[in-house]
Nucleic acid binder design. Structure first.
Lengths: 171, 171
DNA sequence: CTTTGTTATTTTAAGTTTAAACTATATGGT
DNA sequence: ACCATATAGTTTAAACTTAAAATAACAAAG
């Protein structure tokens, strides 16, 4: 039986109740989280069904596409939100699929550089175009003003959060 | 060497580049996604360090707290964005910690109902209070208007996305 | 040189995730 | 009762995740 309902659209209500009892920050966060998950899951689903790819794979390929010469694995990790140890397996799988090629650096044999293959470039371009179109489709009813306003205000949100992180990673 | 940089604050820029070349919908999505991950990771970190709990555990307990009589596992799955198969292990771990109790339904032996124990209720109340305070702290610089505006506009976003999901789950 | 430290990547262990298959139980039509 | 079908929950397989330890290569100080 097929049954992946992990992100039903009315999630926020179901999950968090009427939510009138929460503080504004909490209400916003619950709504933002549920919306993000809704979109993420939808994109994940489409990437998988239409391209047999996962979201982290797409992220990684987007990075490599941006750097024609390829990137060392540590740099890839930094740019993709994927932890160091995780890059290894991710790149291995992409290499097995012929989308990425690994080469060892000449001067420094510790370094491995990953680079998209021509097939990888083709595949990425297809996925990127679809990804852009999916977002246009999914957000089409929100209105251009809302999209613009959200972009600005989420910027403020992000700045505030960045300034109050507990770890050493605040900039 | 310790090295978990998976969510540095300037992620959006690093990850997605100047992003001026993207369509507004894509730009918004990348910013929204990176901000959500920033907050999620911070809350996950705090839940873990201060309560030894994971985010899915917190979500699940929030649901059970809301329903005094407890919930069947399928209903829990629907309400928590946790897929069916995942509920099993999650509830198992919480039961092992004495925070949740499982009982089999009398009439329908397929059904299992999960319910918070008194210890579970105590624990949840502590976590919920901290969670609310963390959000207030993290979002404090964003401004009340931005928070209010975001709440409204993300509502539109969510409605649009819900209306255009590919699966059968659109309502 | 050789010890000490640093950097790049891989490996490991524990746990989470999704999607799909499986088991057991119930229900409904005949 | 019997069979098809639906439902509740569990299990499985593959991918991903974090955190930490391990390996390997380089760098530099004495």
């Amino acid at each position: 039986m097929i049954d992946h309902h992990a992100a039903s659209p009315d999630m926020e209500l179901i999950v968090h109740g009427p939510s009138g009892r929460n503080k504004p920050e909490t209400r916003l966060w619950l709504r933002m989280l549920s919306t993000t998950r809704l979109i993420t899951n939808e994109i994940r689903r489409r990437l998988r069904s239409q391209f047999g790819a996962t979201l982290p794979q797409f992220d990684l390929m987007a990075q490599l596409y941006r750097e024609e010469a390829g990137l060392r694995l540590g740099e890839l990790s930094r740019r993709t939100m994927v932890t160091n140890g995780n890059i290894t397996g991710l790149v291995e799988r992409l290499e097995a699929d012929g989308l990425v090629k690994r080469t060892t650096h000449d001067q420094d044999r510790r370094v491995t550089v990953a680079k998209l293959t021509p097939a990888g470039i083709d595949r990425f371009l297809l996925m990127a175009a679809a990804h852009e179109e999916w977002l246009r489709e999914l957000l089409q009813d929100a209105g251009d003003e809302a999209v613009q306003s959200l972009w600005v205000n989420i910027g403020y949100l992000k700045a505030s959060v960045s300034a109050h992180l507990s770890g050493e990673e605040a900039e």
